[in-house]
Simulated assay, not measured.
Amino acid sequence: MTTHRPPVCGILPPYLLRTLAQRTGEPAVARAAEHTLLIERTLRTEREVRAHAPHDRGRPPGPGFVPDRLRSAPAPPRRRPTVTTEEASEGPASPQRSVHDAEHGSSLPGTLARSEGQGPHADESVNEAYDGLGATWRLFQQEFGRDSLDGAGLPLVASVHFERDYDNAFWDGRQMVFGDGDGKVFRSFTDSLDVIGHELAHGFTQYTAGFVYVGQSGALNEHVSDVFGVLTAQFNADVDANAADWLVGKELFTEAVNGKALRSMIEPGTAYDDPQLGKDPQPASMADYVTLPHTAEHDNGGVHINSGIPNRAFALAAREVGGRAWQTVGPVWYDVMTAGELAKDADFVAFARATLAAALARYGEDSPAWRAVDGAWREVGVETAG
């Protein structure tokens, strides 16, 4: 059976980069945004070519835009691998990290800079990436019993210093890639732990629900990454749901930007309002759902935009229950992603109903968690009855 490569998923949506390229009075910022968009178009083209190529340096070929197998068939159940007595005697699972330096080029992964168990490197970006990979791995392993993104010990590979003035970070289906930002609008993308967790969570989705990266299923793909990215940061800082700020990428903007983060899960649409970037376009409910063509130029149907709706539902539910979100509502979302019962083109209604079923199975009928999840979806206008 042919294995398809998932889409390249960047933390910055293309509409934001296009706005920067067109509006900014800073030529260097505009050039950086245009350069980033050009690279991402190239990455998409390479992905399309791999869809029909017989091989890719010994790796499985990648997908077309929406491969046939990802259209409506539900994903098979994901069973945790059997652990032998010999393997169990080797001790607890541990991450297998390697961080590489792309040296401002595009050849991946680049020169190995730090591997698992080695001490800190002289390069801050290398250390931030290494620590971020570890924090994300620990969340999945310690709280959900999952050994890496695939549940079977997948090595976590990252490359820093990708290209020059590259305004993004992305998961390419095999590894993490970080740009250094342009220094005027965006800082280094290794600065934000929830961004690292977000991008790695695209790998988690790749190995579980596999949501098609268009329309509402694509918005769910982005939503799940925001959830587990924010949970990684909250888990690492041991911050409970009501004390957390629910911001995604708050470390990315420089002081020149009028904004607090890239996205706000609890208040979508309020993360930034800046002359260069425009205003945060995320809706907070289905009443303001944004309908866009399912093209790369229109964010694949608004996957980074409409993800604000399920984002708010998760944050509202977590705050209603209280306590540590990764131990209350987080396990419900994890159960949904790993159950293998959702179609890969699931919409918001299907996902919401799955979370209610998972909350019922985990916590019981009319439990505080079930009521919180149900109320949160109702608050954002997603119908769960039926």
Rank of each mutant, 00 (worst) to 15 (best):
M1V: 05
H4L: 01
P6N: 03
C9M: 15
G10V: 02
G10N: 07
L12I: 13
L12D: 04
L12F: 12
P13G: 05
P14V: 13
L16C: 07
L17H: 11
A21W: 08
Q22Y: 06
P27I: 04
P27G: 04
A28Y: 00
A30C: 05
E34N: 14
E34F: 06
H35T: 13
R44I: 04
E46K: 00
E48I: 14
P54V: 11
H55D: 15
G58R: 03
R59D: 08
G64I: 04
F65H: 12
V66C: 11
V66F: 09
D68W: 08
R69A: 11
S72P: 05
A75S: 10
R78Y: 12
A93L: 05
Q96G: 02
R97M: 12
H104L: 00
G105T: 14
G105M: 09
L112S: 07
G117L: 07
P120I: 02
H121T: 04
A122E: 03
E124R: 06
S125N: 01
Y130M: 00
L133C: 10
Q142C: 11
R146N: 05
S148W: 00
L149G: 01
L149W: 01
A158Y: 08
D165I: 02
D167Q: 11
A169V: 10
F170V: 05
D172K: 07
R174L: 07
M176K: 05
M176G: 14
M176E: 15
G179A: 05
R187W: 09
F189K: 02
D194E: 14
V195G: 08
G197T: 12
G197C: 12
H198F: 14
H198W: 13
H198L: 13
E199V: 10
T205K: 01
T208L: 01
Q216N: 09
Q216Y: 09
S217D: 07
G218D: 06
A219D: 10
S225F: 06
V227K: 00
G229D: 00
G229Q: 09
L231F: 06
L231V: 08
A233D: 11
Q234S: 12
D240R: 02
A241G: 07
A243W: 01
A244R: 07
W246Y: 14
V257G: 08
G259P: 11
M265G: 15
M265E: 15
E267R: 14
P268R: 12
D273R: 05
A284F: 08
H294F: 13
H294C: 11
H298F: 15
H298R: 14
G301N: 04
G302Q: 06
V303S: 11
I305W: 09
I309Y: 07
A315S: 12
L316Y: 01
E320P: 01
V321T: 05
G322P: 06
Y334W: 10
V336C: 09
E341W: 03
L342R: 12
K344L: 08
D345N: 15
V349I: 09
F351H: 13
F351G: 06
T355P: 08
A357C: 00
A358C: 00
A358F: 00
L360A: 08
L360C: 01
R362G: 04
R362F: 09
G364M: 07
P368Q: 01
R371C: 08
R371Q: 15
A372F: 07
A372Q: 06
A376H: 03
E379L: 03
V382C: 12
T384W: 01
